[in-house]
Simulated scan of single mutants.
Amino acid sequence: MTVKNQSLFHGEFLRFTAAYPGDTEHMARFTEDFDYLRRLDTDFAVPSQPSAFAKSSTRSGNSVEFMLRPLENDRLIGFVALFKIEWNNRAAHMAIGIGDPKDRGQGYGADALKMILRYAFHELNLNRVGLDVISYNESAIRAYTKAGFTEEGRMRSSVLRQGKTYDRIMMSILAAEWEALQNG
């Protein structure tokens, strides 16, 4: 594994930061977007109070979370996290959210994926990063596939939305697969 002289906290468009004062209120406003919540999680959609985000830490024993900000300013556009880290298995789950609809489709998600995978494999020395995504979130599935994730399986009809069921797709990428994509 070759570590290039490159900041793990900067990408092509974004940088990772800790939460700034006021970010909890901003993240709570993201949850007022029904579509955002329906793409982010399989739980029922309900806006969150800022206090819900204040309780989450940037770093704990089995999770790491970064706020996403464009390189040119301090505007919060979303978050990316590695959670349920199993140090003995060198494995983690990943989650990403771009809050404002106008920030989606701008390359931020792809950049955040590159950055969090580089961090997972080069800084945390993980071997596997997994995630799950709802089958109707086609843009996320394309982004994950383009980043090198492979579908491992499905939980059929496991998400019920407005009277219709959807699959939950399990995907992952291994360190060796990610390295091969970086070198080839």
Results as ranks from 00 to 15, higher is better:
residue 85 I to M: 09
residue 85 I to P: 00
residue 85 I to C: 01
residue 85 I to T: 06
residue 86 E to W: 08
residue 86 E to K: 13
residue 89 N to W: 12
residue 89 N to P: 03
residue 91 A to Y: 08
residue 91 A to K: 14
residue 91 A to D: 14
residue 91 A to C: 14
residue 92 A to M: 09
residue 92 A to F: 07
residue 92 A to K: 04
residue 93 H to D: 15
residue 96 I to M: 09
residue 96 I to W: 03
residue 97 G to Y: 08
residue 97 G to E: 10
residue 97 G to S: 12
residue 97 G to L: 10
residue 98 I to Y: 08
residue 98 I to M: 09
residue 99 G to I: 08
residue 100 D to F: 12
residue 101 P to A: 12
residue 101 P to R: 11
residue 102 K to R: 15
residue 102 K to F: 14
residue 103 D to T: 10
residue 103 D to G: 12
residue 103 D to Y: 14
residue 104 R to C: 14
residue 104 R to D: 10
residue 104 R to G: 10
residue 105 G to Q: 09
residue 106 Q to N: 12
residue 107 G to L: 07
residue 108 Y to H: 12
residue 108 Y to C: 03
residue 109 G to I: 04
residue 109 G to W: 01
residue 110 A to P: 08
residue 110 A to K: 14
residue 111 D to Y: 04
residue 111 D to C: 09
residue 111 D to S: 08
residue 111 D to V: 03
residue 112 A to H: 00
residue 113 L to S: 06
residue 114 K to L: 13
residue 115 M to S: 05
residue 115 M to V: 06
residue 116 I to S: 01
residue 116 I to A: 01
residue 116 I to N: 00
residue 117 L to E: 02
residue 117 L to K: 05
residue 118 R to G: 06
residue 118 R to N: 09
residue 118 R to I: 01
residue 118 R to T: 10
residue 118 R to M: 07
residue 119 Y to V: 04
residue 119 Y to A: 06
residue 119 Y to I: 06
residue 119 Y to E: 04
residue 120 A to L: 05
residue 121 F to G: 00
residue 121 F to M: 02
residue 121 F to V: 01
residue 123 E to W: 11
residue 124 L to G: 04
residue 124 L to R: 06
residue 124 L to Y: 01
residue 125 N to S: 12
residue 128 R to W: 08
residue 128 R to M: 12
residue 129 V to L: 10
residue 129 V to D: 00
residue 130 G to M: 15
residue 130 G to L: 12
residue 131 L to G: 03
residue 131 L to H: 04
residue 132 D to I: 00
residue 132 D to W: 05
residue 133 V to W: 03
residue 134 I to L: 02
residue 135 S to N: 01
residue 136 Y to F: 15
residue 137 N to K: 01
residue 137 N to A: 01
residue 138 E to M: 08
residue 139 S to R: 15
residue 140 A to Q: 00
residue 140 A to M: 05
residue 141 I to A: 03
residue 142 R to D: 12
residue 144 Y to S: 04
residue 144 Y to W: 10
residue 145 T to N: 08
residue 145 T to P: 01
residue 145 T to L: 07
residue 148 G to C: 11
residue 148 G to A: 13
residue 149 F to Y: 13
residue 149 F to L: 13
residue 149 F to M: 13
residue 150 T to L: 15
residue 150 T to W: 13
residue 150 T to N: 15
residue 151 E to Y: 07
residue 152 E to N: 14
residue 152 E to P: 10
residue 155 M to F: 10
residue 155 M to I: 05
